[in-house]
């Protein structure tokens, strides 16, 4: 009886399975991408094209949606427009073709700025506090540690909107309604549980010996944390920051409820951009496209860290 050797290994998959995997991945990517592509296309359509039925896949691209997004306009008579002389810029020209003149910038830029301040501000705060808390929970004897950690996690168990009314009333009393500070604090509070739990996992994986070595070498505990632990948490911090930013950036319900003017973020603003005769779909689509960019850029910049971050714990020595 001779032993037959088997000719496959665990590591390599056959050509067939590779093909099937490729088809599945590409298929899923297409399904997931279609709405995004459609949004991107709609941003370059004219208002009639954007609501044409059957939907137009091929159309003449125009920047009208983007111009409308950033400006406010008013309809004028032909005589008045002619009296203005030739248009000074390409967007003046575009607007005048529809018998309109630009009367000023829209509020989109302000809303967008609010989104950036609140999104990045709360992300920074959640990651900063989360890192310190995670280090504390990982390294020190905290009384009732497990209960505290569970309590922190439990804040995630209900939908945030369930506490919307109490928060609304509280914010009104405290004067935090419609302020950037109020929104930053709120998003930080929501994100903090995620940040603490994610980051604690990363700190737990860093051997204590590093800090002990630094402490023996003449550094204080905080210096050891700053010089030795923090650099090794980089990928964990990047992954956590992305998750926090995505939440704060996309959050709609609280933003709608708690902000109306000064501190309104982009999500409640974009869907209500009104054009002539209802919603200005190309402007809404253009706003959405511009809105997506920062998170995409942030994620692409940190993608290597993110990939290492989200597989944490999966690969061990």
């Amino acid at each position: 009886m001779s032993a037959r050797s088997t000719a496959y290994s665990v590591g390599e998959s056959s050509t067939w399975t590779k093909w099937i995997a490729a088809v599945l991945v590409i298929g899923y990517a297409l399904v997931a991408m279609i709405p995004l592509v459609w949004i991107g296309m709609t941003g370059f359509k004219s208002p009639p094209d954007s609501i044409a039925y059957p939907p137009k896949v091929f159309f003449e691209p125009t920047l009208e949606g983007y111009v409308n997004l950033f400006t406010t306009r008013s309809r004028q008579t032909d005589e008045y427009i002619e009296s203005l002389g030739p248009p000074e810029t390409w967007y003046d020209e575009l607007v005048r073709e529809r018998n309109m003149v630009i009367t000023g910038p829209s509020r989109f830029a302000d809303r967008y700025k609010n989104s950036i301040v609140i999104g990045f501000g709360s992300t920074f705060l959640a990651v900063f506090l989360g890192t310190l808390a995670a280090y504390g929970f990982s390294r020190f004897k905290v009384p009732l540690k497990d209960d505290l950690l569970f309590f922190i996690l439990s804040t995630r168990m209900m939908p945030p909107i369930a506490v919307a009314i109490p928060i609304f009333l509280m914010y009104r009393e405290l004067g935090l309604s419609d302020t950037a500070l109020g929104m930053i604090l709120l998003y930080t509070a929501v994100n903090l549980s995620l940040a603490v739990w994610l980051l604690k996992g990363f700190v737990d994986e860093i051997p204590r010996e590093y800090e002990e070595a630094a402490v023996v070498d003449g550094y204080t505990r905080f210096q050891a944390f700053y010089k030795v632990v923090l650099p090794q948490m980089r990928s964990g911090i990047a992954a956590t920051a992305i998750f926090c930013l995505i939440f704060a950036w996309n959050e709609y319900a609280f933003a709608l409820l708690l902000t109306s003017g000064e501190a309104q973020t982009a999500p409640p603003f974009i869907p209500i951009i009104i054009g002539e005769g209802g919603l200005d779909w190309p402007a809404v689509a253009a706003g959405t496209t511009v809105f997506l960019l920062p998170v995409v850029i942030f994620t692409v910049l940190l993608r290597n860290q993110l990939l290492r971050g989200i597989t944490f714990g999966a690969i061990r020595k």
Binding site: Y210, E212, A213, V216
Partner: peptide, 20 residues
């Protein structure tokens, strides 16, 4: 005294080099 004030050096079994 804290470890830093004791004028000692410690060699660990492993993990003592800073990877970064």
């Amino acid at each position: 005294l804290a470890p830093a004030q004791r004028d000692i050096a410690f060699v660990f079994q492993q993990y003592s080099l800073y990877p970064h």
